[in-house]
Design a protein around this nucleic acid. Structure first.
Lengths: 138, 138
DNA sequence: TTACACCTTAGAGTTAGGTCCAAGGTCAAT
DNA sequence: ATTGACCTTGGACCTAACTCTAAGGTGTAA
């Protein structure tokens, strides 16, 4: 069990942020001490890691709350709903990955050009390298 | 050449957003009409596509401005600076991709569980599937 | 020449996601 | 028993990225 300050330090966020996440339904501490201190367990820690990762990838806190709320309950009558919701989220993730891969390949080319590649005049910015061949396709 | 409204409609943003991007140095229209109307060309359109893509992946407008400002000028004395800056940005992109791939694999497992996979009791949420095997490693 | 859909600027307002008090309680060490 | 580093709540404040409003100019079709 961690106090709020320990957890915050572990994952480099502030205690204010943790209280904010609690208030907005993203991360509820597993318990409270007799005197009202928030107490977090390892499951809370993993949730927070997930929140931080997903945020870095451009998901809103609302998106993240939805992702965290996905629960597949075998035989549940809501299985179909959960599945189509999850498929929709997967599609968003796939899109982000495609876009990042295009940017990644552009940046790699720019670095190569900097190493003395012979196309440096033609490929001199992220936009020109994106246009090159395997850029973002829409 | 497009007027602001045409470009906005083409890429599903508002005209206010385009004016905002101009004011903040992200997207300057290639010309103005005699009467002061903004005129955008295809290069402006590609810049805007890039801005939208990068934003979706969690880059701030400041990040995006920096990405757009990368210019490799062969033989430039600043080549080294540009290279290390670009390498740093590439590292950020690589991280985002890793995190998205972990989330992607989780979502795929959840969808499979929904299809009647036999591990649905054990793997019932995004967090449990992340913990499974190939989750995010820190 | 007037209607209507465009465009201009400047500046105010909004939302998400924190961040920072203030006033006070808790806990371990001196 | 008091110091100092923790914790509590409530509410004000802040920044990024829009979004809206007001007051007015432009362009073209009836």
């Amino acid at each position: 069990m961690y106090q709020i300050g320990e957890l915050a330090k572990k994952l480099s966020v502030t205690t204010d942020t943790l209280r904010y996440y609690e208030k907005h339904g993203l991360l509820k501490p597993s318990a409270r001490s007799a005197t009202g201190y928030r107490l977090y367990n390892d499951s809370n820690l993993r949730s927070l890691q997930f929140i931080i990762s997903a945020k870095k990838c451009g998901f809103t806190l609302k998106d993240i709350q939805e992702l965290l709320s996905i629960q597949v309950d075998k035989g549940s009558h809501s299985c179909h709903d959960v599945k189509s919701f999850t498929e929709h989220k997967l599609q968003q993730v796939d899109e982000k990955i495609s876009e990042l891969i295009a940017i990644q390949s552009s940046l790699k080319k720019l670095i190569q050009a900097c190493d003395g590649g012979d196309k440096s005049a033609a490929n001199c910015s992220i936009l020109t390298t994106l246009e090159d061949d395997d850029g973002i396709t829409h």
